[in-house]
Amino acid sequence: MQEINHTGSRTTRLLGAAVIVGLVALVLLGWFVAPEDDDQQDAVRMIFVHVPSAIWTYIAFVTTAIGSVMWLVRRSVWWDTVAAAAAEIGVLFCGLTLFTGSVWGRPTWNTYWDWGDVRLVTTLILFLMMIGYLSVRSLGGPESATATRAAIVGVMAAAILPIVNRSVEWWENNTLHQKSSLTDGNLEDMTLFTLVVGLIVWGLFFWWAILHRFRIAWLEREIRSSDLDRALVERRAEGEPGASPLEERV
C-alpha cells in the first residue's frame, strides 16, 4: 500500500489557503468596513460568524441524515463516513452558533439565553442529539454495527426535529429572535455584503474540515482492514509445512 502520512491534497491546500485569505478579508470587512448598527452598535458584527455557522450547521446535519439513510438503504461505507464527518463538523459549528448567539444576546436582549425562543431551544436540543450521535459513534464494536446504530440515531434526530420545533413554537409564542436577517431587507449594503462573504468563507472552512475529517476516517478504516488482512496472511502461513513456529521449536 502507498505510504500516506497526511490528508492534504491540491484541493484541500487551495481550500485552506482560500480560508485563510477569506478570514483575513472577513475580519477587515467585519471590523472596519461594515457600519455599526443603530440599535445594536458593535454587537451586530457577531452576525458575520453567527449566521454563517448556523446555516452550515443545518447543512451539516442534513448531510448526516442523508448519509445515514444511504447507509441503511445501500450499505454505502462512503456515505457512512460522510455522515460521521459531517456530524463532527456540524457539532463544532452548532456549538459556535450557540456560543456566538448567547454572547450577542447579552448586550442586545439583556440575557444570554431566552427560553421563549423557538430557534434557540430547538438548536440546543439538536446540539444535544448530535452529541449523542457522536457518542454512539465512539462506542466501539464491529464497524457495521456502529454505522447502523449511528445511522438510526441520525434518522431519528432528523425525524424528531420538526416536532421539537413545533413544540417549542407552541410552548411560548413571544420570540425575541430576529426573523431571517438575510431576507428581511433591513441590512445595510456593506453589512449584507460582509455577511455574504462570511457565508462563503465559513462554507470554504466547512468543506476543508469535512474533507480532512472524511479522509482521516477513511484511512482509519483502511488501517483496520489492512491489519485484518495481514493477520489472515500470517495465520495462513502458519498452516504451511515448516512455517509453524511450533515445528521450528521442535
Partner: peptide, 22 residues
C-alpha cells in the same frame, strides 16, 4: 440500539432524554 455495548447505562440517557424533549 445500545443493548450490545458496555457503556449502555450512561449512553442511553444521553440519547433518550433530548429525544423526549417534545
Amino acid at each position: 440500539l445500545v443493548a450490545g455495548v458496555r457503556a449502555r447505562e450512561t449512553v442511553l440517557p444521553i440519547l433518550l432524554l433530548p429525544v423526549l424533549a417534545p
